[in-house]
Each structure stands twice: as structure tokens, then as C-alpha cells.
């Protein structure tokens, strides 16, 4: 039951994040859809962690090289999602207001993805492979 509540809450926050992103694109005074490319970063961001969790199932060590590389790549994808609207705003492709909205959406979406890992993938008694 707790899983259901968490799932509903996470989907709510994900919807809020996407709303911020679309507001940054589709409001009348903005109207430029270039920031939608951060959707690619949203899709890419959990993939390194999935791969490393599947590959490294030795749970006795607290860390290993594969997982650290996955954290490095995930951080890079998150930083890229924040860097793209800033660069777009600096080249005056989009306005700074749209940039702010997109970055707010970024923060909410990435917190949602992080919450998914904490709720469904982090515990020792509940492994990710059960999905």
C-alpha cells in the first residue's frame, strides 16, 4: 500500500515537472519549443544506473568501479539538462523566463526519478530485479 501511495505521489510530481517544462515552451509570450530536447536527458538519466545495477550484483562490497562510472555519467546527464536551457537563453533563442521554468521542471523531474530509485530500487529487501 505504501508503494501505491509513493507511486501516485511520484507520478503527480512528474506531471508537475512536465507542466513546468511545457509552460516554458508553450506560453504565448515564449512559444519556442527548443527546450523540449531536455526530454532526451530525462529518458537517458536513469539508464547508466540500470546498467550498473544489473551488471554488478555483488552486494558485499559497498562500491565498485562500474557503479561509480554510472554515477559520473548520470551526473553528466543531469548537468546537461540544466546546461541546455542556459545556453539557449544566452543565445537569446529562448527568454530567461522560459529558461527558469524549464529548469524548475528539470529539478522536479529529476527529484521524481531520484525518488523512484529511493522508493523502488534502494532497499536491500526489495531488489530492482523484481520488476
Amino acid at each position: 500500500m505504501a508503494g501505491i501511495k509513493a507511486l501516485v505521489g511520484l507520478s503527480f510530481s512528474g506531471a508537475i515537472g512536465l507542466t513546468f517544462l511545457l509552460l516554458g515552451c508553450a506560453l504565448e509570450q515564449y512559444g519556442v519549443y527548443w527546450p523540449l530536447f531536455v526530454l532526451i536527458f530525462y529518458v537517458l538519466s536513469p539508464i547508466p544506473t540500470f546498467i550498473s545495477r544489473r551488471l554488478s550484483d555483488d552486494t558485499d562490497s559497498s562500491s565498485n568501479a562500474c557503479r561509480e562510472l554510472a554515477y559520473f555519467l548520470t551526473t553528466g546527464i543531469v548537468v546537461s539538462a540544466f546546461g541546455l536551457p542556459i545556453v539557449l537563453a544566452r543565445t537569446t533563442t529562448i527568454t530567461w523566463g522560459a529558461c527558469g521554468l524549464v529548469m524548475t521542471g528539470n529539478a522536479v523531474i529529476f527529484l521524481t526519478i531520484f525518488g523512484f530509485f529511493v522508493v523502488f530500487g534502494g532497499g536491500d529487501d526489495f531488489s530492482w530485479e523484481q520488476w
Binding site: S63, Y71, L73, V79, S80, G83, V87, R90
Partner: peptide, 29 residues
């Protein structure tokens, strides 16, 4: 202490990709 590798990886990732996005910014500007 247990999390040291994780934090170092994240810090390295932030530095690396911030640097590259700064250079991208300069290149498009």
C-alpha cells in the same frame, strides 16, 4: 566514509560536464 566514492564521482561529473557546457556556451555565443 562509505559514500566517499559516490560523492567523488558526482563531484567529478559536475566539474566535467559544467566545464564542457561552458565551452559549448562560448562556442555558440
Amino acid at each position: 566514509g562509505e559514500r566517499r566514492n559516490t560523492i567523488a564521482s558526482i563531484a567529478a561529473g559536475v566539474l566535467f560536464f559544467t566545464g564542457w557546457w561552458i565551452i559549448i556556451d562560448a562556442a555558440v555565443k
